[in-house]
């Protein structure tokens, strides 16, 4: 029934602890998974991401690491079973190159995602919840950092620092992603701070860190999750670009490095014969990026109640189409 139905409070009181857990399980785990699985686009996204995760963990054990002169130079794809996707200009197996580039890629995405969303959550929550002087200083800082173009800044920093560890590369590439994200977390927290239940917690003199941990963060968690995925995508785009263009040092196996060799050394642009060395890593990048896009859009569908309300045509919809009935 409607949230404003007079009977609701009456029923909630009678729920047992066990029912509450069942309810929570359904609300936070089972029902989102059902939504994920019900939409084939999200399903494909999940499968793609799982595939890359497997490639980065199990795949590197099964597939030998790339070495120069592993096979003949420039073996074309689909010619020999030894090198199904061929070899590059240095005789490295294409499959080895792709598979062994996955772990550093995943590490970069993880560190970039944690860094960007972590800093953003801390600063955004602090600014939004504390308001006043702290807020205006933090907001100004975040506004300024947002205005500085992320990619050129990352290029400059990468050129000067020449980072080698994937973990550092991830942070360099998301060097100002936290700013815009922190700004929007701030405005969400600002809205939440004024909400009735946070007001209630304050009235009950619950300590601020507890309010933030129990009332605020769980509510912005979906948003953070989606942006974690998006930060990962930014890391893919930027890292490939910077390795491809030779800004980052070639110490990691990376799809961008493979593309760079194809472009600079094999002349993949001019000769049709070498084009596969450029195309194969490109496909690896596009598929992973597609998986992440599908995943974050699916997550958006799960977490966006307006969309969900449109899907499950509940009775409140019929009472008041479009507005959700609970006004």
């Amino acid at each position: 029934m409607d949230a404003d139905s007079p009977f609701r409070a009456y029923e909630v009181e009678r729920r047992t602890r066990r029912q509450r857990w069942a309810y929570k399980w359904d609300l936070y785990v089972a029902s989102p998974l059902r939504v994920v699985w019900s939409d084939w686009r999200t399903r494909v996204g999940v499968l793609i991401v799982v595939f890359y995760l497997l490639m980065g963990t199990v795949g590197v054990v099964l597939v030998p690491p790339p070495e120069t002169n592993q096979g003949a130079l420039h073996t074309q794809p689909f010619q020999t079973m030894a090198h199904p996707l061929g070899t590059d200009g240095l005789g490295q197996d294409m499959i080895s190159l792709i598979v062994h580039a996955t772990p550093p890629m995943l590490e970069m995405m993880l560190s970039g995602g944690v860094f960007a969303t972590g800093v953003a959550t801390v600063l955004g929550t602090l600014a939004g919840y504390r308001a006043g002087r702290i807020d205006s200083v933090l907001t100004t800082v975040m506004d300024m950092a947002t205005a500085i173009p992320g990619l050129p800044l990352a290029i400059v920093v990468a050129t000067i620092l020449q980072p080698e560890s994937p973990w550092v590369v991830g942070i360099v590439l998301t060097i100002n992603v936290w700013a815009g994200l922190g700004r929007s977390i701030r405005s969400q927290v600002l809205t939440l701070r004024e909400s009735d239940y946070v007001e209630a917690s304050r009235t009950m003199r619950i300590r601020t860190p507890n309010i933030i941990a129990r009332d605020i963060v769980p509510n912005i968690m979906p948003y953070i999750t989606i942006n974690f995925v998006n930060a990962g995508r930014i890391v893919i785009f930027s890292s490939v670009a910077l390795y491809f263009l030779g800004v980052l040092p070639f110490t990691n196996t990376h799809w961008g490095v493979t593309m760079n060799r194809a472009y600079r050394n094999s002349g993949a642009l001019y000769s049709l014969g070498a084009s596969y060395t450029l195309l194969i890593p490109m496909i690896a990048i596009i598929v992973l990026s597609l998986g992440l896009v599908l995943l974050s859009q699916g997550a958006d569908r799960i977490f966006n109640p307006r969309v969900r309300a449109r899907r499950s045509k509940t009775i409140s919809d019929s009472e008041d189409p479009g507005t959700g009935g609970a006004r």
């Binding site: 893919i236 491809f244 593309m259 642009l269 450029l278 990048i285 596009i286 990026s289 597609l290």
Partner: peptide, 14 residues
């Protein structure tokens, strides 16, 4: 969604 997941420079190279 599909075009959105292609990096612009990858399309550029293509």
């Amino acid at each position: 969604i599909f075009f959105n997941s292609i990096p612009y420079y990858v399309l550029g190279v293509l």
